[in-house]
Design a protein around this nucleic acid. Structure first.
Length: 449
DNA sequence: TGGGGTTAT
DNA sequence: ATAACCC
């Protein structure tokens, strides 16, 4: 099991050490199947991060569901987009987020499956997260002694067995290989892995050799990697807006950013963003691995060409709500806030969503998950009030998206355990002497694995 | 562009 | 509630 004790800690303010220790054993998971982990170390300044990134996750789940699809070019469709596709399809020119019509033109043999319902992807994602958690617990007792690298070494650099950093990264590569093996053997999923000294570098290097391979980055090749990027937008953490802003300043390459005046950058982007992305451009990233734990919100959304009546909106909201109630019931925790999100039709407005939220009345919260059918009626009432708050139904309107979100999730006071309760349990020891609510990883026993 | 998710302000 | 980021 994992021990996380606050040894002789008289300082109640010391959240840092606690977070660090948690990150030492934590696994971050998300729906896309991306997982990071940090190996336990004595010295927190020399980290080894293993980043694993599943290959075209949705397409893999579909191929596992229906093996006949395995050797055909396959695309996963949501509305009129091919959101992802397998590598057969990529060879034939299909790209992620390609219009269905364009994809069919490029590749007439393309097989399409609908991927608008995320249920099965979610289920597989939970399995992956669960597996990674268990491997993580086991790692600490593993013998990791064979000193040979697994997979590629970035830039073909040679390993110096006398360099302790090299050795630790090499051990990381073995762990990455073993985790990928386990994922394939148990769940049939393939993926890439990157091993490096921080999250940024691990993620970047994971994509160097692409499907189903892994790469370790030795410290001497860090600058080579970062300068191999053709544009700053390829740096995770620099998104759409920041890229536009940087381009306006004449910054397009990593070198441009590295040598740009930090003062001007701070004025343009704010001190926080400026300093963070400047460090990123040098391959520096001290952000910790944060175990994601169970989700903090659940939402269902649907997009469409046009919804312009209150009656139709209500119907769509009821559908979204029914699925959501199911999911929330299975999770076991109770949402205390509900939010309605809309997107209005507008010719050229990038990212125009509006939302209204409100607390869920306590008597409704109580009924949630009891199988009581009458939870629908009051919830629909609430959501329609939020709807009319945003949309003047006496005037013509044109919506292209509706979404319902449950958030502010709280564990119930009863002893009933939901499926995700497995990951985190309230830490009695810490809570009792710090007065703060905190969590520790629950012990896992080897026979579970 | 889809159907999600997070954190910061 | 919005805006930025991630996949």
């Amino acid at each position: 099991g994992v021990e996380l004790e606050e040894e002789g800690c008289g300082n109640e303010e010391d959240d840092e050490a606690w977070a660090m220790e948690l990150s030492d054993v934590g696994a971050a998971g998300s729906l896309q199947g991306v997982h990071d982990q940090v190996l336990p170390t004595q010295n927190s300044s020399t980290r080894v991060i293993v980043h694993v990134d599943l290959d075209c996750f949705y397409a893999q789940v579909e191929m596992i569901s229906n093996p006949e699809l395995k050797d055909k070019p396959l695309g996963v469709q949501q509305k009129y987009l091919v959101v992802t596709c397998n590598y057969e399809a990529r060879k034939l020119g299909v790209k992620k987020l390609m219009n269905v019509r364009v994809a069919k033109e490029k590749c007439p043999q393309l097989v399409l499956v609908n991927g608008e319902d995320l249920t099965r992807y979610r289920e597989m994602s939970y399995k992956v997260t669960e597996m990674v958690e268990k491997r993580l617990q086991q790692l600490q007792s593993d013998e990791l002694s064979a000193m040979t690298v697994s997979g590629h070494v970035y830039n073909n650099q040679s390993i110096n067995l006398h360099d302790i950093l090299h050795i630790r990264l090499l051990v990381g590569s073995q762990i990455a290989a073993e985790m990928r093996e386990a994922m394939y053997n148990r769940l049939g999923l393939t993926g890439c892995a990157g091993v490096a000294s921080n999250k940024l570098l691990a993620k970047l290097v994971s994509g160097v050799f692409k499907p189903n391979q892994q790469t370790v980055l030795l410290p001497e090749s860090c600058q080579h990697l970062i300068h191999s990027l053709n544009h700053i937008k390829e740096i995770p953490g620099i998104g759409y807006k920041t890229t536009k802003c940087l381009e306006a300043l004449g910054i397009t390459s990593v070198h441009d950013l590295q040598t740009f005046s930090s003062k001007i950058l701070e004025k343009e982007l704010g001190i926080l963003v400026a300093q963070r992305i400047l460090k990123l451009s040098f391959g520096e990233d001290n952000s910790p691995v944060i175990p994601s734990g169970p989700p903090q919100s659940f939402s269902e959304e649907d997009s469409f060409k046009k919804c312009s009546s209150e009656v139709e909106a209500k119907k769509r909201i009821e559908e979204l709500l029914a699925s959501l109630l199911n999911r929330v019931c299975r999770d076991g925790r109770k949402p205390h806030t509900v939010r309605l999100i809309i997107r209005r039709y507008s010719s050229e407005k990038h990212y125009g969503r509006e939302s209204r939220q409100c607390p869920i009345p306590s008597h409704v919260i109580q009924k949630l998950g009891t199988g009581n059918y009458d939870v629908m009626t009051p919830m629909v009432e609430i959501l329609m009030k939020l709807f009319r708050n945003m949309v003047n139904v006496k005037m013509p309107f044109h919506l292209t998206l509706l979404s319902v979100c449950f958030c502010n999730l709280k564990a119930l006071n009863t002893a009933k355990k939901g499926p995700m309760d497995y990951y985190l349990t309230p830490s009695l020891t810490t809570a009792s002497h710090s007065g703060k609510r905190s969590f520790k990883m629950k012990d896992t026993h080897m026979e579970d694995f």
